[in-house]
Simulated scan of single mutants.
Amino acid sequence: MPVATLTYDTPQFLHKLIGNDLGSLRLVGETFGVNVTSREGWVRLEGEDAQIASAREVFMQLEKVRRQGGEISTGMVRLVTESVQRESGDAPAEAIMHLKLHGSSKRPPVLAKTRSQIAYVQAMRECEVVFGVGPAGTGKTYLAMAQGLHCLKEKSVQRLVLTRPAVEAGEALGFLPGDLKEKIFPYLRPLYDALYDMLEPEEAERLIERGSIEIAPLAYMRGRTLKNAFIILDEAQNTTTEQMLMFLTRLGDGARCVVTGDPSQVDLRRHVKSGLKEAVELLQDVEGVKFVAFAPKDIVRLPVVQRIIEAYQSGRTRKSESQRLSETEGQGKDSCPASDV
């Protein structure tokens, strides 16, 4: 049976090439029907010539990404494997690196790692308003932040504005310690975390002090017109319908806007409709607005996070179906005529 051996500089390079996950070797082997073994800095492919060629192409594409400074994840390995299997479009490495986002010259570029993430970055480059909707951990906010910093660096916008609703989940603001700024900070902390992950602390603080980056609660947006700015509304599922309309009408000349949210994690009071839900219902066909849906397979956090979300979705679906059947049976009983006694 034909055999091919791929040799790399060091075992460490190979380990990074497969996203630091030996399961990536199994994925490639099962996808193309080849036997994949690895020792030290080499990979051995055993199978039919056509299958070996496809598996070799996956490793070549991943090597291109890695040698151009890209960090590889298991999601990216899956993306490249699926692309080679379908033989569709541009070479995966070229598509991924074409969409790379630079926030700081001292940090590695941010790359799209799944098919939905690629569509998301493309949408942010082409449309004025983009909605990224899906479960936590799919990179919605992180990629939006990276795109915003990229636009700021390229001077296509003058400001990056980051906002999210300060929804009271359990504790009222008035009962939290500190002044107003200290009360609000915990709600905005995820945005600061993403920002400091992409920029050196000194650079981030300098941009904030200059006003090039603004981080504020959604309530601070009322009455403003945001021109030549890249605006990100995070956790949009916690906006009311009035807040969402208010936010979307703040956009001025040269503005770009990204709205992110997870419809399954609404913290609004019962019977208060989510502004994100209404936007999804009303804006699908509006020119200049693009919706990108993320699924559990797009999660780029620990694999266990994906399994947890899938388990919750499955359980909630079964519960909803059970409730629907119970209500249907109850209505059927109510409609039955009373028996004569």
Rank of each mutant, 00 (worst) to 15 (best):
R44I: 01
R44C: 01
R44F: 00
E46P: 01
E46G: 00
E48A: 05
E48P: 00
A50C: 04
A50P: 06
A50S: 11
A50R: 04
I52N: 06
I52E: 07
I52Q: 08
A53G: 09
S54R: 11
R56F: 02
R56Q: 10
F59V: 04
F59T: 01
F59I: 08
L62P: 02
L62E: 07
E63W: 10
K64D: 09
K64Q: 09
V65L: 09
V65Q: 08
V65R: 06
V65F: 03
R67L: 11
R67A: 08
Q68M: 05
G69A: 06
G70C: 04
E71S: 12
I72G: 11
I72H: 10
I72Q: 07
I72M: 06
S73R: 13
S73Y: 07
S73C: 02
T74I: 07
T74K: 07
M76D: 09
V77C: 10
V77G: 05
R78S: 09
R78L: 06
R78T: 09
L79H: 12
L79D: 04
L79Q: 07
T81N: 11
T81K: 13
V84L: 08
V84Q: 06
Q85E: 15
Q85N: 05
R86L: 14
R86Q: 15
E87H: 11
E87S: 14
G89R: 12
G89K: 14
D90M: 11
A91Y: 07
A91E: 15
P92G: 13
P92Y: 14
A93C: 08
A93H: 08
E94I: 06
A95M: 15
A95C: 10
I96M: 03
I96L: 13
M97I: 15
H98S: 13
L99N: 13
L99S: 04
L99P: 11
L99Y: 11
K100Y: 01
L101Y: 04
L101T: 07
L101N: 03
G103H: 03
G103S: 01
G103M: 01
S104I: 01
S105A: 10
S105Q: 10
S105W: 08
K106I: 04
K106N: 09
P109S: 00
P109Y: 00
L111I: 05
K113H: 09
K113W: 04
K113D: 03
T114P: 00
T114I: 01
T114W: 03
R115K: 13
R115P: 00
S116K: 15
S116G: 14
Q117D: 11
I118R: 15
I118A: 15
A119P: 03
A119V: 10
Q122F: 11
Q122Y: 13
A123Q: 15
M124S: 13
C127E: 15
E128R: 15
F131Y: 14
F131R: 11
F131E: 06
G132Y: 03
V133E: 04
G134H: 08
P135M: 06
P135W: 09
P135H: 07
A136M: 02
A136C: 02
G137A: 01
G137V: 00
T138M: 02
T138H: 01
G139S: 03
T141W: 02
T141K: 03
